[in-house]
């Protein structure tokens, strides 16, 4: 028996008006696989994550998560667009960390991590608190439980955001340029947390990143997006070592020059 992919994009197209951002995308991600998405801005890479989180509607195709359709549902033997109830059931499998953290400013770090487990998963306050404390410890913020977002550095805020997403026990984690808004000296602490998640938890991870070194070391597979399509994909050694595609080579050498 073959293993079913955790995430599957099946001919997914996304348009904004006349502009096609993603053009009939096919992509399969296996359970536990860590995929890094790289590419120039405007290549549609962030859109992939936002569609998977249902923050963007898709225009064509179907996205599957854990063997079930995410954007659609079965009805009378056909696939029809998902309703709100189906989306809410499916969203539970996915967590997301944003470029700008999007922490709730009126709640402490602990409350940020307890809010959704209590209101959505209906955990008791005690259970939610225990889970939140455990996760905040894991991201190295055991001493910041009662701090508000405005009292934390960017790196600390982003680590809270990671703990907050994990508190929902997702199967798939999405990281959308999570270090892009950080001062350079704070990038490391966030990447270290992600490394730790990769080794300790059984998570499928999809990350859009500009940290080429991290992508090379951490990812199982790298996808290079260009003009709304996957121009090239493969293991990091291949993409970073002997890229076949001219565009990939140009992009990577431009990235190197920037350093």
């Amino acid at each position: 028996m073959t293993v079913q992919p955790m995430v599957k994009f099946d001919g997914v197209t996304k348009r904004y008006g006349a502009l096609t951002v993603l053009d009939s995308l096919d992509l399969e991600i296996m359970p536990g696989e860590k995929v890094a998405v790289i590419g120039p801005s405007g290549s549609g890479k962030t859109t992939v994550l936002r569609m998977l989180m249902t923050l963007e509607k898709i225009n064509d195709g179907v996205i599957w998560v854990d063997g079930e359709p995410l954007t659609h549902m079965h009805k009378d033997g056909r696939l029809v667009l998902a309703d709100a109830a189906h989306l809410r059931r499916m969203r539970g499998k996915i967590g997301m960390v944003f470029q700008h953290f999007n922490l709730f400013p009126h709640m402490s770090a602990l409350k940020n991590c307890m809010e959704a487990p209590v209101t959505v998963l209906k955990l008791s306050k005690e259970e939610a608190r225990a889970r939140a404390v455990e996760l905040l410890e894991m991201v190295g913020l055991a001493d910041k439980l009662d701090h508000y977002p405005a009292q934390l550095s960017g790196g600390q805020q982003q680590r809270v955001a990671i703990a907050r997403a994990l508190a929902m026990r997702p199967k798939v984690m999405l990281f959308d340029e999570v270090t892009s808004a950080l001062d350079p000296e704070l990038v490391g602490e966030v990447l270290n947390v992600i490394r730790r998640l990769g080794s300790e938890l059984d998570l499928t991870m999809l990350m859009v990143t500009h940290q080429m070194g991290f992508a090379r070391e951490f990812a199982d597979r790298v996808c290079f997006f260009y003009g709304g399509k996957i121009a090239e994909q493969g293991p990091p050694e291949q993409i970073f070592g002997q890229a076949q595609n001219e565009r990939t080579r140009q992009f990577l050498s431009a990235c190197l020059e920037a350093i």
Binding site: T54, L55, M96, F98, L103, A116, A165
Partner: peptide, 8 residues
């Protein structure tokens, strides 16, 4: 968007 990602 954060509330959507947290399935609220």
């Amino acid at each position: 968007e954060a509330t959507t990602a947290l399935n609220m």
